[in-house]
Amino acid sequence: MSRPVFVSVLLEMSASGARHPLAITWEDGSRYEITRSLYVGRRAARSAGSGECWLCRIAGRDIPLYYSPLSGRWWMDGKGDPEPAPAAEPYKRVKDRDYKPAGQ
């Protein structure tokens, strides 16, 4: 199982418009340097969602880092169970106004 872990990213924007992630900060506050990154286009994440994807070399391993232009957030696939589905709420009928047919 996998869950999305939203991370802060230190990003270099080059003059040509290319983006290079340089480092990320994990949810527990630990910081990881990215020694090399490769933009691979759009990818569906193993955890959740899809977005633009960079393969980032962190401590010798290539790990996908995703960015969604829709939410503006960056995330990685973390270990653990995804957020459980919400519980169903009982349906409450919206009360209609009292029915007064015209002419009565």
Binding site: A44, A48, G49, S50, P82, E83, P84, A85
Partner: peptide
Amino acid sequence: LRQPSLKTV
């Protein structure tokens, strides 16, 4: 896609 746990309900 956004919330994969919805697949189970």
